[in-house]
Amino acid sequence: MPVTLRTALVLALASAVGVLAFCWPLLIDPNQALAQGTDAPLVLAVVLLSVLSVVFVALSDGGIDVKAIAMLGLLSAVGAVLRPLSAGTAGVETVFLVIVLGGRVFGPGFGFALGSTTLFASALLTGGVGPWLPFQMLGASWVGLGAGLLPGRLRGRGEVAALAGYAAVAGLAYGVALNMSWWPFQLGGDTALSFVAGDPPVENLRRFWLFSIATSLGWDVGRAITTALGVVVVGRPVLAILRRGATRAVFMTAAAAADTGKRPRTGS
C-alpha cells in the first residue's frame, strides 16, 4: 500500500479528527450539549467510525494489491490469536508486537490498515464490538503508521532498539489516550478526580494525571516496558521472517526486466 499524496492527505485529516476525538475532555466547552451526560464518547465514536471508513474507502479505491490483502488478513489473524493471550501474561500487549513489526516491514499505509483490521477482527471474534472500538482501532492504526514512518535505513541492533523504544512510547501513549477519551465516562462527575467541563486544560490535565496514577498508569507503564522487551526479544527473528515474506511477495522491478528485448512483463 504505497502512500501517495492523496493517502497522506487523507491520513493527516483523519488524524486531526482523531486528535480532537481523543482529547475532547480538554477541549470541550461547558455550554455545548455534549458536555453533559454520557453522549460525547458515543457521538465521537460514530464520527471516528465514519472517518475510518472514509480512510479505508480512500486506501482501497483503485484497488489494493491482492497480496497485501491476504497479508493483511493473515497478520490480523496472528494479532487476533495473540490478543487474548496477552490478558494473562502480565500486561504484555502482544498485539502491538505484530502491529509495530508489521508496520515497520510493510510501510506506514499497511501499518495503519493493520492496526484497524487486527483490532476489528479480534473484536468480532471475541464479541468486543462497542463504542470503544473506533478509538482502539484508530489508536492501533497510529501505532502501525508510526512504526512505518521510522527512519528506513536502520538495520540490525539499531533497528531493534529504535523499534523497542518506539513500542514503549507508542504503547504508553495508546493507553493514556484511550484512558483520556473515556475518563469522564468511566468516573462520572462527582469525585475530586473527575473531569470538569470547561475548566482550564491544565486543571483537567492535573486531575486526569491523578486519575491515571490511581487507575491504569502503572499498568500502562508496565505494558510499555514489557512490549519494548518483547520487541527486543522477538524483534530480530520476527523481522527476518516478515522481510522474507515481503521479498517473496514483491518481485522484479521493471528496470531489471529491461535487459531483454522480448517485451517482458512483470507484475504490477
Binding site: 474507502v57 490480523s76 468480532l124
Partner: peptide, 26 residues
C-alpha cells in the same frame, strides 16, 4: 459477526475481505 461482515458496502470490499480472511483463519 461473519454475517454482519457480508453487509459491508462495496467500497469497503477490499478491507472487508482482509477481515473475512482474518476471522476465517484465526
Amino acid at each position: 459477526p461473519k454475517r454482519a461482515l457480508r453487509c459491508l458496502p462495496a467500497s469497503l470490499h477490499h478491507i472487508g475481505t482482509a477481515i473475512v480472511i482474518a476471522v476465517t483463519v484465526t
